[in-house]
Structures are given as structure tokens and as C-alpha cells.
Write a protein that binds this DNA or RNA. Sequence first.
DNA 1: ATACAACTTAAAGTTAACTTTAAGTCAAGA
DNA 2: TCTTGACTTAAAGTTAACTTTAAGTTGTAT
Lengths: 144, 144
Amino acid sequence: MYYTVGEIAKKMEVNASTIRYYDKEGLLPFVKRSNGGIRMFKDQDMGMLNIIGCLKQTGMSIKDIKTFVNYYESGDDDFNKRMNIIENQEKLVQLQMENLQKNLNMLEYKKWYYTKAKQLGSLDNVEKLPKTDIPKMFHKFLTK
Amino acid sequence: MYYTVGEIAKKMEVNASTIRYYDKEGLLPFVKRSNGGIRMFKDQDMGMLNIIGCLKQTGMSIKDIKTFVNYYESGDDDFNKRMNIIENQEKLVQLQMENLQKNLNMLEYKKWYYTKAKQLGSLDNVEKLPKTDIPKMFHKFLTK
DNA sequence: ATACAACTTAAAGTTAACTTTAAGTCAAGA
DNA sequence: TCTTGACTTAAAGTTAACTTTAAGTTGTAT
């Protein structure tokens, strides 16, 4: 069972031209062609397409994804290189999540701030609140 | 107490030219100038700089941050607009985190996969494993 | 008063990751 | 066989968010 570039694009929820671009950049060396030159994706290719999508969604550049893909082409003999890339990416994702969590806390603070401003009638009145009236979790966001 | 563009850039861990670019794009209408034209940042400005940094780090475009900032300039009278932006951004951040978590799970699967390949001697041997030998949490990543 | 590091602007340059265009080819159905 | 929608490539275009450059100004320290 084979899939065309358009079918794969739909599955991956990207533009077909994006898939062609990835191919041109060397991310899809495993994709075979028909006699007429049409790309023929196999079910078996989905594993690689998914990991490529995963690396892309977690911020890896096309260039670095290419490096990763090329370790596959060079055979079965060294899992460590691929493993290192995966483990490093895992650490990067954890950092991204920690950073997002910090930013989420800041947004929570701003929400509290505006809610309080509505209650008290103005932003100035929130600024005048004693520190004891500000939830402890928000103290780190105070500028003065 | 005033800070120059360079001092603020250091605090925010960005290039000074980035701050100037943000100013040019209308993100910093609250920054006053000296008679000679030098930007003078106040401690009081840090709150806005921090929320700008937060919105930027969570993926908001310069254009949309500008919209948010402009609600401040238009005064104290409508917290709802700012609140809506903050709440919407919060939802976006939650989606980002959920997405990162899914990708982290995929990376975990790949790590398991390579570890297993090392144990069994080849990638093919991992492919041959019966489903019962694959942790349940990874079943969703199986392509066949 | 002079030096000099850091500031100023406008404009041009950079980068990554697509996206579009143009001109043509493939392959499945009527 | 013909039509037609989806495929092909190479090359040019787009976008956002900076970053650099050039030429000049400011302000602090000696």
C-alpha cells in the first residue's frame, strides 16, 4: 500500500509543498519513487515521518533533523548517536516546558492583577495594596 | 533611577538592537527620553517589559503584543480587553505544554526503542517483538 | 577641553522555513 | 484515447524577527 505526497501531507497536517521541501533538504532519503518519478510513501515510512514531525515540533532545525535522519541511512551499527540526539532533545523539551510553566505563572499573576483592579476600581489601587494582600506565589513578580 | 537601553538589554538577556527594534515597532510607548534623545527606562517600566517578554516567549507576535500594549496607553477604563488577551494566551500556553508532553512521550518511546535495540542486537529484532513485550504507554506510537 | 564608550537613526542585510509560480508530466477514470 | 486532478522540478517570493552597518550624537570621566 502506497501513499502520495498529498495523502501524507494530509496525515501530517502540513502543506504538500512542505513535504517536497523536506525531501529536497534531505530529510526523506528513504522515500522511493515510481517509474514516472512520483514519490511512494510506505506505511513503514510513518515511523520516520512521525519522529521527524516530533523533532520539528520540539524546535529542532531542518539541518539537525537531517543529521539525525542520516544516522539511519548509515545503518544499524551505532544507536548511541541517535540516542544522544533523542536524549538531548528530551532535555531541551523539559527546559521548554519549565519555561512555559514560568510564563504561565506570570500570566496567572496578570489575571489576578486585572481581577483585583476591577474589584478595586483602578490599577493604581492594586499597586497600593500591602504585600500581605498579594498571594505569596505572586511575590516573585513584584517589581518593587 | 534610570537605565539605558544597554542595561535593560542585559537584564532581559537580549541584544540592545532588539529593544530598539521593539521600540520602533511601537511596543515601548511608555519609555521616556533625555533631552539628548537617550531612552530612560524606569524601574516602573519593568512590569511592562516583563509581560512583553512573557508574551514573546509564549509565541505571541510583535503585532499582537503591540495591540496589548496599546490597551494600556488608552487608559484605565477597560481591563476586559487585556484580560481577554491574557486568558487567551494562557489557553495557548496550555496547548503548547500538552503538545510538548505528547512529543516528550514520543521521545521516551524512541529512547526505549534504541535501548531495546542495543539489548537485542538490532532494530529489526525490536520490530519483531510481540506487542505484549512493548510497554502499554508506547502502544499508541506503533505504526502497524 | 577632550576622549571615548555607549548612545542615536535609517536603511540594508540576514535567516529559517516555508510557499508560490511556471511549465510541464503522470496516471486513473470515462 | 482523452481529460483532469495531482503529481514533478527549479526558481523566485514571502514572512517574521531580528541584526548589522554607517554616520553621527551624547554624556561621563579624566
